[in-house]
Design a protein around this nucleic acid. Structure first.
Length: 211
DNA sequence: ATCCCGAGGG
DNA sequence: CCCTCTGGAT
């Protein structure tokens, strides 16, 4: 896909989803970004935002979280679902940050993914939001949308990530992640995408094949 | 009923 | 590759 086409697509997506980008991109310290993102699996950010104030009030640092009681963390995060595994993971992550990384969230992806509950997608969120490193968190939405449009044709999320990081201007990576996710949720659904409402349909490979 | 901005384990 | 973990929103 040509570079100017890519830029045009990004511009159109930006126009559609610019409203809520700010809060998503809001920088927070790596610890908060990391824990919030671990908790966000299979839930919405709304749900996570409801419980993080109390969580970070009680456990403002990795060290405090590492010493937390499982039952107490479970109580605070209960409403986000998968809470037993998440409680175990965030506590173990806090402890590992202290024991292996001197109390600071590691900045290398290879180190981050060793933390319990942290996969590649979560690590990439921390990289792009808190460390200002080029990265693209590829979740199911980003994977599907990028493949359909033709921004990144790939069989694995890792390949999608690699291609997107390469073609999207570095300064737009964080916002682009948000635009692609929003597009996946609002228009480009997994099941029945609403191509008639899609602002980038004219550039979309998937749409072309439908016709 | 069905899905959600995943990760870990078999 | 497929399963499981889970409450909440729609």
């Amino acid at each position: 896909m040509r570079k100017d086409t890519i830029l045009k697509i990004l511009k159109l997506l930006k126009k559609s989803y610019t409203a809520n980008v700010k809060p998503w991109l809001k920088k927070s310290d790596p610890y908060k970004t990391l824990i919030s993102t671990i908790l966000s699996a299979q839930t919405t950010d709304d749900q996570v935002d409801k419980i993080t104030p109390e969580l970070f009030q009680e456990y403002p640092t990795p060290s405090k979280l590492g010493k937390a009681k499982v039952a107490e963390v479970e109580r605070i995060i209960k409403s986000v679902g998968l809470y037993k595994a998440k409680a175990r993971n965030v506590i173990a992550t806090g402890r590992m940050i202290v024991e292996e990384f001197g109390g600071q969230v590691p900045q290398a992806r290879a180190d981050m993914v060793r933390l319990p509950g942290v996969g590649r997608k979560t690590a990439n969120v921390v990289l792009i939001k808190s460390f200002n490193e080029p990265a693209m968190p590829v979740d199911t939405h980003v994977f599907r949308v990028a493949n359909r449009i033709g921004l990144a044709i790939a069989k694995t999320p890792e390949k999608t990530e690699e291609q997107l990081v390469k073609i999207i201007p570095r300064k737009d990576l964080g916002a682009a992640h948000f635009w692609l996710i929003s597009h996946g949720r609002v228009i480009c659904h997994a099941r029945s995408p609403e191509c008639e409402r899609c602002s980038v349909a004219r550039y979309c490979q998937y749409f072309k094949e439908l016709k």
